[in-house]
Design a protein around this nucleic acid. Structure first.
Lengths: 205, 205
DNA sequence: GCGATATTTTGACACTGTCAAGATTGATTG
DNA sequence: CAATCAATCTTGACAGTGTCAAAATATCGC
């Protein structure tokens, strides 16, 4: 039945435990946060013994890093898609749309977002090499875009576009966190807030 | 010896365990985050038995809330002091100074800051009633100030000063988090970034 | 088929939060 | 001053946690 399994995936006993664990862990976390993820319960849910996951992820930390990594891949892909629309849509529209999307995605995947940028991995844990790489790569993409938008006069730039990119992203990030952490609970005004934030960045008042 | 102890503090067996616990817990957390705070180790360090703290704080959650609460008290006090200087200093200078101070304080007390605004308490835990109160009160103070600065033409206001206040604070918060969570590790450029952020908020370009 | 290797399991250890029940102490009241 | 009562603290216990070591099992290359 699984005899003609090709290419990439290994499937010794379980099929593809690595991928299964990743998916199940993401599900668990999306409900109760990374604190609610127990390696033992995870193994239980997937149907393997307590320590089986340790052959696919060195640590709980490594598992969390892998989840974060997936998030970066998705966001990076979306940024590319946005920039590919540069010929067909006005830049301001694209940028505004991207910001709206970014924040909403962060909200829909709060816990994953927290892993991507939170202290648990980056300060208390130890970010995987590959997580560090993809994270750096993604920020470079963002910087690249903001730089272009500054040159094209779309975004208010100060002395340094690097600083501008940092601050712009910090603003997005701040909004995400206030939403995700349950401080601004009313998402009814969310769109308004995002628009206000974007207006602060754009050149046109 | 402790016979003439007056006024506020109780001191049955220990002296003032409540306060001692709060202080010790703050110390522990400031090193390794709230995850590194174990109720048992805390009790141990203070020199009482494992469950003694539970007579002063219902939960680990309650203890964390108490720590967060102290943080709000300090920040609130500082905001008041800033506004009291309104006659003697230009408003722009005061505002800029406040922002710098706010972010630096957040960085110096990262873990406490995380408790004040993080998901651990606000979403996964259950914020104490008194924590909710002081937090709300503090945001009202901030809103009040921003409202005034908008009216005085210091800060760029959009349609709603409420939204402006939210976005301005989100920006501060975002910077704090990027710093605190170890994503922007170089604090050498911190002052520049803060200035860029402030410029984005001010009317004068 | 055989040996090497990847994968999974069982057992164990030290740790966690916190509940229940008992012991001790301090304040209060008669 | 003595007795009562409540506040405070301790000991014992339970179910959980992450993860290491060693043993068992399955799969692959030859």
């Amino acid at each position: 039945m699984t005899s003609t399994m090709p290419t990439t995936s290994r499937h010794y006993h379980h099929g593809d435990l690595h991928q299964t664990l990743l998916q199940a862990a993401t599900d668990i976390i999306s409900e109760g946060g990374s604190a609610s993820l127990s390696m033992r319960k995870l193994a239980d849910r997937v149907g393997v013994s307590r320590t089986a996951p340790y052959h696919h992820f060195k640590d709980k930390n490594a598992l969390l890093c892998a989840i974060a990594e997936q998030g970066f891949k998705q966001v990076e892909k979306f940024l590319e898609e946005a920039r590919n629309r540069e010929q067909t849509e006005p830049l301001t529209t694209i940028f505004t749309g991207y910001v709206h999307h970014y924040i909403k995605r962060a909200y829909q995947n709060r816990e994953q977002y927290d892993l991507m940028f939170g202290r648990e991995v980056w300060r208390h844990g130890s970010p995987t090499a590959s997580l560090q790489n993809i994270s750096r790569r993604h920020f470079k993409s963002w910087l690249n875009w903001i730089d272009q938008l500054c040159q094209q006069g779309v975004i208010r730039s100060g002395d340094s576009t690097l600083r501008t990119a940092q601050v712009c992203w910090a603003t997005l990030h701040g909004l995400c966190r206030l939403l995700n952490d349950g401080i601004y609970t009313e998402q009814s005004n969310l769109d308004e807030m995002i628009d206000t934030a974007v207006e602060m960045m754009l050149t046109q008042s």
